[in-house]
């Protein structure tokens, strides 16, 4: 019984690094294997969670971009509609006559040119 008490007191006095080295030396191959497997599994789990978060994050990004695209498409269509309205010949003609003083060409004032 006495040597056990001594050894216990000796262990308590050993510095942490020494104890760790001894503990390391003491790990059985099976435990090491299990720890490695656990580590790999943990890493796999972390990777899974990480990529899942990425998928969700990218999903939100895609949704945002899709909404922006839809909004821009709508805006583009609205602008094309506005362009069409502004190009209305009735409006353009009225502007040309009233604001610019333009008139219809008289017969003979239009000369057709042949393409070279």
């Amino acid at each position: 019984m006495a040597p056990e008490v001594r050894s216990g007191s000796i262990q308590q006095e050993l510095p942490f690094g020494v104890r760790a080295r001894r503990a390391k030396r003491g790990l059985s191959p099976e435990l090491k294997q299990k720890l490695i497997v656990c580590g790999v599994l943990l890493l796999g789990l972390l990777f899974y969670v990480w990529q899942h978060i990425q998928v969700v994050r990218l999903g939100y990004q895609i949704e945002r971009h899709r909404a922006a695209q839809a909004s821009l498409t709508q805006e583009g269509k609205g602008l094309r509609m506005e362009l069409s309205r502004l190009r209305s010949l009735k409006r353009v003609e009225e502007f040309a006559r009233r604001e610019l003083g333009m008139v219809n060409p008289r017969p003979g004032q239009i000369i057709q040119l042949e393409e070279p």
Partner: peptide
């Protein structure tokens, strides 16, 4: 191809 009618949201 000049727009005459369009649908917008």
């Amino acid at each position: 191809g000049r727009m005459l009618v369009i649908t917008l949201d």
